[in-house]
Nucleic acid binder design. Sequence first.
DNA 1: TAATTTTTTTGACCTAAGTCAATTCTTTTT
DNA 2: AAAAAGAATTGACTTAGGTCAAAAAAATTA
Lengths: 216, 216
Amino acid sequence: MKKIDAIRIFCNTFLGGIDEELCSMMETVTAVITKKKGEIFFIEGEHGSNVFFLISGLIKLYKTNDEGKEAIIHFVKSGEIFAEILFFLQNRYPVTSVALEDCIALSIDSKKIEELISKKSKFAMKLIGALSKRIKYLINMLENLTLSDLSTRFLNYIKTLAEQKKSDEIVLPVKKGDLAILLGATPEAFSRMLKKLKDDGIIEMEGRKIKLLKMI
Amino acid sequence: MKKIDAIRIFCNTFLGGIDEELCSMMETVTAVITKKKGEIFFIEGEHGSNVFFLISGLIKLYKTNDEGKEAIIHFVKSGEIFAEILFFLQNRYPVTSVALEDCIALSIDSKKIEELISKKSKFAMKLIGALSKRIKYLINMLENLTLSDLSTRFLNYIKTLAEQKKSDEIVLPVKKGDLAILLGATPEAFSRMLKKLKDDGIIEMEGRKIKLLKMI
DNA sequence: TAATTTTTTTGACCTAAGTCAATTCTTTTT
DNA sequence: AAAAAGAATTGACTTAGGTCAAAAAAATTA
């Protein structure tokens, strides 16, 4: 993919329209990055200054503790920016990011972004919007994790998917084991919970396909 | 407290210096708010457009579920902004905020802030910085909650306090029951955990005073 | 398509932390 | 200082979900 095309997609998606001046300003501070499934964009704690915009593919953002246990923070889908806190913390990545599918991304050098922010207030506003959305998402994760049990967390998750797709039949976007960890559980507990929902007639399931039977 | 003084404190703390032009721009979009202990700034889900900067006092940000169970997101200390996602989501507050002590705050009308952001890029940069810090804080909360047990979460918490105060003797800033909930536990479990840390010779405790004996 | 690897499911067992109730200790109010 | 209210602790019991191991199913690769 050519850089200018990537920048245009970014402009369109992130700013809601092409701004030729902004596109040309971005030429010098961006690069197109491709990663194959399993490859890593950056590792938690690593120094860096690049913020990314995912054009195609799927990415897992996670943290690991000393014993290698994972805490999955988010699955990045195409059209999203990630590592956006590097705009401020020109410093260390707070999480690790791995490609779950082959990916194309636009990397943006945050060291040179201050000029962009000051010249293009629309860019600043959109960035503030993106950061706010991420905060809202994280607050919601925290609330779910502390106030709800696993089946409720899962049902909240698929209800959101169902609303987005306007259908009560959804396909899990990642493998069950990873979804379990996103929801703060083990694959074993997740599997048992799914079985219970099936037995109780709340969902139908075939592989990653889930049909919501009752809206609780 | 006079509004202009509050604005000056905000400017100094948030922007790292007084900017007379910005101060006068803020005159028309701000107000000084005082709340007594126990009073509420805003309730989760409530419509509003005010972002707050806490000048003095202490605030609890939390969510409640249907059964009245609390998930505490953060304790706001003086010098911090809160409800900062309202800059974008001119919309609904994501959490409830209650004064744990008598408070003075500066409220900023986010509807009229876009002009400020576009004219003062330093303001935009600082705001992006504050949002990024909040994201980092929340990611850390999530990681702790999913990867660590209660005693580890507590020790991480007081280690941070100890580093800030550069002392291994700290005073818990809130009552133990609230701290328990911030750490995703019940007051009972928290109390038992503290007893265990004391019995194991890891901390000394007298009321809210905690002394870290071993740095694990 | 067979072989290999990865993912998911199931079983048996365990444990951290929740629940509910009763005390004790502390703070606030009268 | 006494009374009342709120916070913290302790006890007894329960449970959601963790752990480890093995089997079954699905997806990759040869």
